[in-house]
Write a protein that binds this DNA or RNA. Structure first.
Length: 278
DNA sequence: AAGCCTACCAACCGCAGCCTC
DNA sequence: AGAGGCTGCGGTTGGTAGGCT
C-alpha cells in the first residue's frame, strides 16, 4: 500500500540527485519545515514528504557529523544498546550529529558482526571495563590514571584518532526512562558526555541553527558529501526556524561535565585492546 | 579482465502513536 | 470516542564500491 502522503502524487523514489538536494536545502533554508507533506509541493520536488523528511534528517541537516564512528562513539553505542536495545533513535540522541539510521547501520554492519565474532558479544574493553563502570567509578573518585595503568594506553595512537574537541555535554536529551535505565546500570548521566559535534544551541527556546558553524572534518567526507556541505554553506541563511515539533535538547537541563580529561583514552584504549578498527 | 563476494549505507516500507477535529 | 492525518521509528532492501579469486 502506498503511503498516504504518496497517494495521488507521482512521486520519485530512489537516490536523491544533487538538484533535488539543492531544492530541498533551499526551501528549508528559506522557510524551515512545518509540515513535511507540504514540503515537496512547495519546494518543487516530486517526492513524498516522508522521503523529504528522511533525506533532510539523515543527510542534509547541517548539524550532521559525517565520517566513521570514533572508538568512543562505538563504546557508547554498545553500552547504550545494551541498556536500551534496538531503540536507535534514543541511542542516536546521545550521539550528537548521528542519526538513528546511521547508528542502526553502524550496529548492523559493524558492531553486530564484531560482537558475534568475539565470543559473547562484548568487546574486551567493555567486558572488563564498561563505560558504565568507568562512569560510576569516576563518581567515586577513581583516578583515570589508575585506570590508564590497567589498560596500558598508548597515548600517541589514541591522540591520532581523536579528532574531537574536549568533552562538553552529552545525554542532554535524555528522557526519564533513559535516566532510569542508566541509573539501573549504576551510570550517572551527568558523567556521560561527549565532544560536541555541533555548536550548542544558544538557548533552548530559540529553534535556530547557524550554518556558519562548520564543524565537519572535510577530509572525512566523500565527494558527494563535500558537495552537499558546499551547497549548505552556499545557500543557507544565517538562521533557520525549525519546526517546534522537533524536540531540541533541553539546554536548560543539559548537564555540563565538569572535567573528563581521559575518558576517551580509557575507552579507546580498551577498545583497541579488544578489537581493531578498520 | 571478469565475475563473484562482502561490506556498507541510503532509502523505502509498514506500523505505531500522537494530534486534531 | 473514534476517524483521519501526520510524524517518527525500526526493519528491511537494493545499489554500489572494493577486495578477492
Amino acid at each position: 500500500m502506498a503511503h498516504h502522503c504518496c497517494i495521488n502524487q507521482r512521486v520519485k523514489k530512489g537516490l536523491w540527485s544533487p538538484e533535488e538536494d539543492e531544492k530541498l536545502i533551499k526551501y528549508i533554508s528559506a522557510n524551515g519545515y512545518g509540515s513535511w507533506n507540504s514540503v515537496p509541493r512547495l519546494a518543487g520536488l516530486q517526492r513524498c514528504g516522508k522521503s523529504c523528511r528522511l533525506r533532510w534528517v539523515n543527510y542534509l541537516r547541517p548539524d550532521l557529523k559525517r565520517g566513521s564512528f570514533s572508538p568512543q562513539e562505538e563504546a557508547l553505542v554498545i553500552e547504550l544498546h545494551r541498556n536500551l536495545g534496538n531503540k536507535w533513535s534514543r541511542i542516536a540522541k546521545h550521539l550528537p550529529g548521528r542519526t538513528d539510521n546511521e547508528v542502526k547501520n553502524f550496529w548492523n554492519t559493524r558492531i553486530k558482526k564484531k560482537l558475534r565474532s568475539q565470543d559473547h558479544a562484548i568487546p574486551h574493553a567493555l567486558a572488563t571495563f564498561s563505560v558504565t563502570e568507568y562512569l560510576s567509578g569516576s563518581e567515586q573518585g577513581v583516578s583515570p590514571h589508575v585506570l590508564n595503568r590497567n589498560f596500558n594506553l598508548n597515548r600517541k595512537s589514541q591522540q591520532d584518532q581523536l579528532h574531537q574537541p574536549p568533552p562538553i555535554r552529552m545525554l542532554q536529551s535524555l528522557d526519564l526512562s533513559d535516566h532510569r535505565i542508566l541509573e539501573q546500570s549504576s551510570c550517572s548521566p551527568s558523567w556521560v558526555h561527549f565532544p560536541p559535534l555541533i555548536p550548542p544551541l544558544p538557548n533552548s527556546s530559540s529553534k535556530t541553527w547557524s550554518p556558519g558553524h562548520d564543524h565537519q572534518t572535510h577530509d572525512q567526507l566523500g565527494p558527494n558529501q563535500q558537495d552537499q556541505n558546499f551547497s549548505m554553506r552556499a545557500s543557507t541563511p544565517q538562521s533557520l526556524v525549525i519546526n517546534p515539533r522537533i524536540s531540541e535538547p533541553d539546554s536548560e537541563n543539559a548537564i555540563l561535565a565538569p572535567e573528563m580529561p581521559e575518558l576517551y583514552e580509557i575507552i579507546i584504549g580498551g577498545i583497541n585492546v579488544g578489537s581493531e578498527r578498520n
